[in-house]
Amino acid sequence: MARLAAFDMDGTLLMPDHRLGDKTLSALKRLHERDITLTFATGRHVLEMRHLMGTLSLEAFLITGNGTRIHSLEGDVLYRQDLAPDVAEQVLHTTWDTEASIHVFNDTGWLTGQDIPALLEAHVYSGFQYQLTDLRRIPAHAVTKICFCSDHDDLCRLRIQLNEALGNRAHLTFSAVDCLEVLPVGCNKGSALAVLSDHLGYSMQECMAFGDAMNDREMLGSVGRGLIMGNAMPQLMAELSHLPVIGHCRNEAVSHFLTHWLDTPDLPYSPE
């Protein structure tokens, strides 16, 4: 029996309209009633996640910013890591060969230099918004992560540039097909979940985790039971081909799997 359950948000718990379905919410509450600790492991900002947790009346630990922050049930910071200032400086002040928009995250929120209303659609239910600012004026010591948003082919070309420039001074990952993130070295959801598990006195074998994108790879590959969404990125399915695929987020596949796991754990699971 798992003692800690970790969930990605976008493309996993959330349906394509960025809403948490009633069946999913009910299944999460059933886990809580079984004394299984919940944690939400997401690229979203802690300010947004706190708001969502309040509206959903859920009690969970928060792994946010793709592992750059961990917060307790009470909202205390258990772990934090920012980009090295020289990395943030180089990424923000280099002219990259890309069409991507640039987005900076720190403890104040989400900062960008371009007004792109379409990006707010993913945050419609929380009301979380970006702040327009001159990114070159942001202090380099106060940058948690940097995101580039564009089409996937453009971001793949950009990733080559970033790898050549940054080497092993940063961790690069796709949090979606159209979002490439620059994170601190060693920062990912898997390493953050290991920190949280140790804090709670659990082993990683006592954890289950759900995800759909490459930023979930380390987390899914390091827990006792990793589960991949049917709508997952092909690269994730290819790299973790030994893990089961449970179904699509549009059908609330997480709730379907959890209901089966709680009620009929000895029977084989069939995706919805």
Rank of each mutant, 00 (worst) to 15 (best):
I138T: 10
M214T: 04
L62E: 12
S101R: 02
L14W: 01
Y269L: 12
P16K: 13
F40Y: 02
A213K: 01
E48W: 09
G201P: 10
L262T: 07
E252N: 10
D151V: 02
E218Y: 03
R157P: 02
A100E: 01
R34L: 12
V195I: 15
K189W: 05
M1W: 04
C149F: 12
A209T: 10
N106D: 15
C249F: 03
D35Q: 15
Y79E: 07
N66A: 09
F148R: 00
Q205H: 15
G75M: 07
N66H: 07
D8Y: 06
L196K: 03
D82W: 00
D82H: 03
L243Q: 12
A2E: 05
C149Q: 13
L236A: 13
G167T: 06
R44A: 09
D153N: 14
A118V: 14
D216P: 14
T37G: 03
G43A: 12
E99N: 15
A27D: 01
E218P: 02
A100I: 04
L83T: 07
N168C: 13
N215A: 00
L13F: 00
E272W: 07
L83R: 05
A165K: 06
A60M: 11
G127Q: 08
H171R: 12
A140Y: 09
L172R: 00
P184K: 07
R3F: 05
E252A: 11
Q114R: 14
M237H: 10
N215S: 04
T173V: 15
R159M: 15
L155M: 03
E89Q: 15
V46L: 11
P234C: 11
I102Y: 08
R69K: 13
L38P: 02
G21E: 10
V91T: 01
S222D: 13
V124Y: 06
L62K: 04
S191Q: 14
D154S: 15
C149P: 01
D263W: 01
A2T: 05
A253N: 10
S222W: 06
M1Y: 08
V124N: 12
E206C: 12
P271H: 08
M204L: 15
D178K: 01
L262W: 08
L56H: 04
D82F: 02
I228Q: 04
H18G: 03
H199T: 11
L240F: 06
A213C: 11
W110H: 10
E239H: 14
G11L: 09
G201N: 09
G190W: 04
R157D: 14
D76K: 15
E206S: 14
R157E: 12
K145A: 13
P265D: 09
S197H: 05
I70A: 02
C147A: 14
T98R: 01
D76V: 06
T68Y: 02
G221Q: 05
D266E: 14
H242C: 07
L78R: 01
P85C: 10
E252I: 10
I146T: 09
I63E: 03
S150H: 02
H256E: 01
P268C: 07
A100S: 13
F128W: 06
L155S: 05
A5P: 05
P244S: 11
T259W: 00
R19C: 08
G167D: 05
T264R: 10
T112S: 15
H71R: 06
V185Y: 01
S191K: 14
V46F: 15
A165R: 08
S175M: 13
L83V: 10
D198H: 14
S101W: 00
P139M: 09
D153V: 14
V104F: 03
L83D: 00
Q205M: 13
L200N: 04
G190P: 08
I160Q: 11
